[in-house]
Amino acid sequence: MLKMNNINKVYQTEKVQTHALRDFNLEVNEGEFIAVTGPSGSGKTTFLNIAGMLEPYTGGQYLLDDVDVGTLSDNKRADLRNQKIGFIFQGFNLIPDLNLYENVEVPLRYRGIKSAERRRRIEDCLEKVGLASRAKHLPQQLSGGQQQRVAIARALAGEPRFLLADEPTGNLDSLMARQVMELLEQINREGATIIMVTHDSELARRAPRNIQVVDGQLADFTLYQNRSADSVVELASGA
């Protein structure tokens, strides 16, 4: 469903030019769960932002469901983000003045879903993340793990086929991190394609496919893992 051909991303600041991504190639199929690892500053967030159409790229071609993203208008990209993509951020990014119910409602309102349908979905999603009873609470009244679960509920409410998460467990302790991971795995089993950037190698190993970004490029190997078996299969990529 996602195909990147020679994607380049150059940040031009006054003094320096940063090649955040160089000739980046990747193909992601429907239903995959990919963990992205790599050193700090290697371009993981840049990749995720481009995949989620949060940032433009400076070269190459990106096809999402066979649509060339580079040709789309800003409004069309916003609409596609709203319809196809769910985002989970390291900092949760809940809106502090909105209660949990209203936070989850945000993307649904942008999609113009009717109130009754919104209510059904919000309640479903809050139920799924185990926070239905706290719908009226404000984000600041929750722990970090709970906030991230709300953020996941918000990402799920639009029933996206594609979930992008940038260090979703980065601000959580290991117990909470595991809970969030389990939630993501469950979501993946239900059919969503997930790309998750993480620094946590233990969590990464739980994902069926691992990719590594080094210096703006995909490292020369991709790890496919078999969830059910302990065996790890290493495949050469490109070479």
């Binding site: 989620g52 949060l54 800003d74 409004n75 916003a78 609409d79 983000r81 709203n82 319809q83 985002f87 951020f89 900092g91 990014n93 809106i95 502090p96 945000v106 993307p107 942008y110 999609r111 918000r154 639009g158």
Partner: peptide, 13 residues
């Protein structure tokens, strides 16, 4: 940040 988040979640300009 909230505005960026809203844009990410599908808000048009």
């Amino acid at each position: 940040r909230q505005i960026g988040t809203r844009r990410a979640l599908g808000a048009r300009k």
